[in-house]
Amino acid sequence: MEVKATMAGSVWKITVDKGEKVEEGQDVVILESMKMEIPIAAEQSGTIKEFKVQEGDFVNEGDVIAVLE
Protein backbone atom coordinates (compact mmCIF):
# COMPACT_ATOMS: atom_id res chain seq x y z
CA MET A 1 0.00 0.00 0.00
CA GLU A 2 1.21 3.45 -0.80
CA VAL A 3 0.39 6.96 0.35
CA LYS A 4 0.47 9.32 -2.64
CA ALA A 5 0.55 13.10 -2.98
CA THR A 6 -2.84 14.43 -4.08
CA MET A 7 -1.25 17.59 -5.48
CA ALA A 8 2.11 19.14 -6.21
CA GLY A 9 3.82 20.84 -3.30
CA SER A 10 6.65 20.60 -0.85
CA VAL A 11 6.71 18.32 2.16
CA TRP A 12 6.26 20.66 5.09
CA LYS A 13 6.03 18.12 7.93
CA ILE A 14 6.12 14.37 8.36
CA THR A 15 3.69 13.72 11.21
CA VAL A 16 4.33 10.03 12.00
CA ASP A 17 7.47 7.89 12.47
CA LYS A 18 8.75 4.96 10.44
CA GLY A 19 7.43 1.75 12.00
CA GLU A 20 4.42 3.53 13.48
CA LYS A 21 0.94 2.07 13.09
CA VAL A 22 -1.48 4.43 11.38
CA GLU A 23 -5.25 4.27 11.05
CA GLU A 24 -7.24 4.85 7.88
CA GLY A 25 -7.75 8.59 7.52
CA GLN A 26 -4.83 9.50 9.77
CA ASP A 27 -2.52 12.25 8.47
CA VAL A 28 0.90 11.02 7.45
CA VAL A 29 2.47 14.18 6.04
CA ILE A 30 1.49 17.80 5.56
CA LEU A 31 2.27 19.31 2.18
CA GLU A 32 2.61 23.00 1.51
CA SER A 33 1.09 24.10 -1.76
CA MET A 34 0.21 27.63 -2.86
CA LYS A 35 0.70 29.00 0.65
CA MET A 36 -1.70 26.44 2.12
CA GLU A 37 -1.07 23.42 4.32
CA ILE A 38 -2.56 20.24 2.87
CA PRO A 39 -2.68 17.16 5.10
CA ILE A 40 -2.22 13.84 3.29
CA ALA A 41 -3.86 10.90 5.03
CA ALA A 42 -3.41 7.14 4.80
CA GLU A 43 -6.24 5.54 2.82
CA GLN A 44 -5.93 2.29 4.75
CA SER A 45 -4.64 1.27 8.18
CA GLY A 46 -1.16 -0.19 8.35
CA THR A 47 2.39 0.24 9.55
CA ILE A 48 4.76 2.76 7.97
CA LYS A 49 7.39 0.64 6.24
CA GLU A 50 9.23 3.41 4.49
CA PHE A 51 9.13 7.12 3.68
CA LYS A 52 10.01 8.03 0.10
CA VAL A 53 10.38 11.73 0.94
CA GLN A 54 12.02 14.01 3.48
CA GLU A 55 10.80 17.27 4.92
CA GLY A 56 11.52 20.01 2.38
CA ASP A 57 11.31 17.71 -0.64
CA PHE A 58 9.20 18.73 -3.62
CA VAL A 59 6.60 16.23 -4.78
CA ASN A 60 4.37 16.09 -7.84
CA GLU A 61 0.79 14.89 -7.89
CA GLY A 62 0.77 11.08 -7.70
CA ASP A 63 4.28 10.76 -6.25
CA VAL A 64 4.63 8.10 -3.57
CA ILE A 65 5.17 9.63 -0.13
CA ALA A 66 5.20 6.54 2.07
CA VAL A 67 4.83 2.79 1.84
CA LEU A 68 2.54 0.98 4.29
CA GLU A 69 2.35 -2.72 5.14
Binding site: M7, A8, G9, S33, M34, M36, I38, E61
Partner: peptide
Protein backbone atom coordinates in the same frame (compact mmCIF):
# COMPACT_ATOMS: atom_id res chain seq x y z
CA UNK B 1 -7.85 31.31 -8.00
CA UNK B 2 -6.30 28.03 -9.09
CA UNK B 3 -8.27 25.99 -6.58
CA UNK B 4 -11.12 23.57 -6.14
CA UNK B 5 -14.37 25.59 -6.14
CA UNK B 6 -15.87 23.50 -3.31
CA UNK B 7 -13.02 22.61 -0.96
CA UNK B 8 -10.86 25.68 -1.78
CA UNK B 9 -7.85 23.33 -1.96
CA UNK B 10 -5.09 24.49 -4.34
CA UNK B 11 -4.99 23.16 -7.88
CA UNK B 12 -1.55 23.76 -9.36
CA UNK B 13 -0.76 22.26 -12.77
Amino acid sequence: YAEDPKTFFPSPG
